[in-house]
């Protein structure tokens, strides 16, 4: 472990594991049940003494939550004792919902959002939609109301069994 000597004596600098855990626990402001680790947008955490560099990747190119997430990461790591926090954004490799954790998908379902189904794949010009299970009653008898929802990452669905509208986190 690296130690930092200052006027007050010797105190241990926060370690990599603390940095990873702290950064990973930051919540997505638009889907607050998910942490950025669940979402798969936390790409790297590197510690050098009392400085930490966090690399994030945006979900969608225009995602406005990136600003808030970046500020939250800086705040959380500063509170954890890091003197310098650098947040970098990288576009490559491009984020995919395949990186969402199974734990994250379960949290989404419990929150009332249908998690992404299957794996991201390039499709043909005439779209084919896969069945999406209702997060409340589990039926596959659901209908897409709109391919676009309240945020870039979601589509709007309606359950034809229980009649509830719900968000579907799109496969991306």
């Amino acid at each position: 472990m690296v130690s930092v000597r200052d006027a007050a004596g010797i105190r241990p600098a926060p370690d990599l594991e603390t940095a990873r855990r702290t950064a990973g626990e930051v919540a997505d402001p638009e889907v607050p049940v998910l942490t950025i680790a669940d979402l798969g947008i936390l790409r790297d955490v590197a510690v050098d003494g009392d400085a930490v560099t966090v690399t994030l990747t945006p979900t969608y190119s225009g995602c406005p939550a990136v600003d808030a997430i970046r500020d939250d990461v800086v705040l959380a790591l500063t509170r954890a004792g890091f003197a310098r926090v650098d947040v970098r954004l990288t576009l490559a490799p491009a984020w995919t919902t395949d990186w969402m954790s199974e734990d994250g998908k379960a949290k989404l379902r419990a929150y009332g959002i249908a998690p992404p189904t299957g794996r991201a794949a390039v499709r043909g010009p005439i779209p084919v939609t896969l069945g999406v299970a209702c997060p409340r009653c589990g039926t596959l008898r659901t209908r897409e109301v709109s391919r676009f929802g309240s945020t870039a990452c979601k589509a709007l669905y309606e359950c034809q069994e229980c009649g509830e509208p719900f968000d579907h986190f799109k496969v991306h």
């Binding site: 945006p58 969608y60 190119s61 225009g62 995602c63 406005p64 576009l91 109301v145 709109s146 391919r147 676009f148 929802g149 309240s150 870039a152 709007l156």
Partner: peptide, 19 residues
């Protein structure tokens, strides 16, 4: 729903434009 769809598409395009 189309208000939302077209605004979402516009947001993606703005993201590409910014990069």
């Amino acid at each position: 729903e189309e208000d939302v769809a077209l605004a979402n598409i516009a947001l993606d395009q703005l993201g590409h434009a910014r990069s």
